[in-house]
Amino acid sequence: MQLEIEIKFSLNGRMVQTKVPPTMTTLVMLRENFDLTGGKLACGEGECGACTVKIDDRTINSCLMFAVDCDGREVQTIEGLGGVAGLEIMQQAFVDHGAIQCGYCMPGMIMQARYVVDQNTDKSHQLSRDDIARGLEGNVCRCSGYTKVVDAVAAVILDEASA
């Protein structure tokens, strides 16, 4: 009998409860226990960022983090970014700027892009294209060549600065 641990946490704004084996990763739990398949298992080693989700106020590779450590925390996945309200501004910018081709890496890329912009609380310093690129250094995309990804993030920064 596989040992399972009961955990309770906030998932995309709703409290949830589930049982997980102590070795299960957060990614597997999200995909299998909650059908949240936006985050992908693309390398399983933290080298590609396709599984990026936000835990409390930090993004992490959910393929590396143990699911039990979600206990008591706030977990946000791509599905919870815009949610039923539709696309959040970062998601919409990725669509509008043509950043999405096959799209497999995009849930992770968009979560990280949102984090990079949110992390910069110093409004006197506007993130440059190089800053954005560095913020996305842990996210691999094989289709876009990153230019339109950075375009999209830069546009969101401009939009939010003028808002």
């Binding site: 949240l36 398949t37 791509i78 970014l81 990725f94 509008d96 043509g98 799209g103």
Partner: peptide
């Protein structure tokens, strides 16, 4: 013109079910 992809919104929202999913 500059036309966005019809499949992009679902891909941006994490809704798209890839074969791997």
């Amino acid at each position: 013109q500059r036309v966005t992809k019809p499949d992009a919104p679902d891909k941006a929202s994490g809704r798209t079910v890839y074969i791997n999913d």
